[in-house]
Design a protein around this nucleic acid. Structure first.
Lengths: 347, 347
DNA sequence: TTCGACCATTGAACCGTATCAATACTGGCC
DNA sequence: GGCCAGTATTGATACGGTTCAATGGTCGAA
């Protein structure tokens, strides 16, 4: 239909009666250009509505000011908060962010990394589901820095940021035990996720350390979603009263909120019949039918710190300076709310 | 540190003993290449670990398989659901998506559009906050198709997808009136947002049509967030019992959830003292302290349809075929839950 | 054997910018 | 006036692909 209205630097140069090199300087090094010419060029740019072509710029310059971010589940508020923290830093530093949602599928995760590599992004913030270690090393070999988010210290080959999930899980477990619960349950999955394994490991530790008669039932879910929680609640509710756990620790708040819904539907009261502790402390946990106790992670801070580490690594590489990888492991805290208040039912 | 390990098509061509043109064909038109050479080239690619440079490809080819998406608030589950719907379609169609979060700031919105234009994205899915009509037209003038999301039929210059917010607002208003409420309130803002104006307009309409003594109090908030809802709840709770509205319609579910929290804190019971209806019907509305009635939008469907329209427009442009813009306006429905059940307190 | 048709492959031109050595200009100073 | 130092500007080149006209080779038909 319309004319392929493609105005380039050359057109600007012609209109402003200068060379393309000068136009380039007006953009990238304005102080190298004399005021009158600078103005003439600026006017030409405005008149033609020229917008620099990022592809051409990047092709020539080699580097890119866009960074890629891969998250497991964009509809989990935990990740959107991490994303917002990262965006805040990157926006300020003049990077643009590309968010990719792997939806907990290792295949999609790899596809996203492929695309980022093809686009020669300046760096990648990566919250992995599968074991993409090899793929990530390939990225680094090409010179693309990668920071691992939400899984701290998995390897000393990268910077990484996360919380100590073992500690978090133990906090939750101890709390339930201190409240008097003896039949505990852990709900979450898949256990291919480090986060799930560690959080479960944490509550297992708490149970062992408590000694005595405390037991732990592990309920595995296909994913960390609301629906998975609802389904798991049905399974638990179906157990006879004497066998059903009285204290449940969910691998994240989405599961916890789902469990709560499911319990209510099944006629179980929280916390009177069954106590509940979640993980992440997303805003919606406090607003749930019964406010949910949760292991708090500094979500925005995780995002910010990841972005800062990534920017530092990118700039070190640009300046050909050495860079040593850093592992930042935040310590989680427990926020107690109504869902785990009071003592367990006798039974 | 490491060598700038930049392997290009030329290297592949040399190793495979063919010309770069042939390598290109292996990638883009495999059937033009004889099987033996194809294999030889494939082996060379694998051996060298070559990954095509998207910038170079795009620079030459002119088109781009990445599309930009601008949302108002990435931490609002409504938008993440829309995003997931769009991603589903675009991933299938081999496009990559860049998500930008304007955070309800017109300035950031414009910055994001600028970046997308510089990157010469293939198309843009745009959920606008401000009045960016001019900027959007500039994009189109450059040949970048734009689909307006979550604001249907604002202009016949673009495709657009959304729901009829006037109808949605009226549904909510009618429902509250039918439940016997006479002192109604609308909570939301800023009213620069079409969505907010339309939803308020809808309940105003319902109040007018109901005739009689029904009144509407409009409470303006700075944004559509949880916190804004909590704050507004404080204001409403501070009103004397006889004056306080008994039926409240929130411009979205985040506000509604915030209101609910605020009311509970202030000692007001929902729905006994004050009834509540939200908008969007996000998953968390049903899971709130009191399950919240809400005007349902087909969130994923909005995302899918937007993406489909965008792809159609892009492909029409590629094929130099005419394209006529389409406006898709879904009709919202009301989902009644406990937050608006029962009759108003006498007072 | 010769010719033409057809197909696989080649090679050069180009996309829009950054970069940098070379050049043109300026003003100050002897 | 001539020369020099210091800037402002130029123009050619490279980046890594795609594209397409031109080339070379094969095979069947005459």
């Amino acid at each position: 239909m319309g004319p392929k209205n493609s105005v380039s630097m050359k057109d600007v140069a012609r209109l402003a009666q200068v060379s393309v090199g000068t136009v380039s300087n007006v953009i990238n090094a304005p102080d190298r250009v004399t005021a009158p010419t600078r103005i003439r060029v600026a006017e030409a740019i405005a008149k033609l509505g020229w917008v620099p072509n990022e592809s051409a710029r990047q092709l020539r310059a080699g580097r890119s000011r866009s960074i890629g971010m891969v998250v497991m589940d964009i509809s989990n508020p935990f990740f959107t908060d991490v994303v917002k923290g990262a965006e805040e830093v990157l926006y300020r530093e003049q990077y643009s962010v590309q968010i990719g949602n792997s939806d907990q599928q290792p295949t999609r995760e790899l596809t996203l990394l492929d695309r980022f590599e093809q686009q020669r992004v300046g760096g990648v913030l990566f919250a992995p589901v599968g074991d993409s270690a090899e793929r990530v090393l390939a990225l680094r070999r090409r010179g693309i820095p990668v920071v691992i988010v939400d899984r701290a210290g998995i390897s000393s080959d990268f910077c990484s940021v996360g919380v100590d999930d073992l500690v978090g899980g133990r906090l939750a477990g101890r709390h339930l035990i201190e409240q008097g619960h003896r039949r505990l349950a852990f709900v979450g999955g898949p256990s291919t996720l480090t986060q799930v394994r560690d959080r479960r490991g944490g509550i297992e530790l708490a149970v062992e350390q408590a000694g005595g008669d405390a037991t732990l039932l592990a309920v595995s879910t296909p994913g960390l979603t609301l629906d998975a929680g609802v389904a798991a609640a049905g399974d638990l509710a179906a157990l006879p009263d004497g066998e059903r756990p009285t204290g449940v620790f969910a691998a994240n708040d989405l599961i916890a909120i789902g469990l709560l819904q499911g319990f209510v539907t099944a006629g179980l009261r929280v916390p009177e019949d069954i106590a509940l502790v979640g993980y992440d402390d997303i805003a919606f946990a406090a607003a749930a039918a019964v406010p949910i106790s949760s292991v708090h992670q500094p979500r925005a801070e995780i995002g910010r710190k990841s972005a800062e580490l990534l920017v530092a690594e990118i700039e070190a590489a640009d300046a050909e300076q050495p860079h040593s990888h850093e592992t930042v492991r935040f310590t989680p805290t427990l926020v107690v709310r109504r869902s785990s208040a009071g003592s367990p039912p006798r039974g």
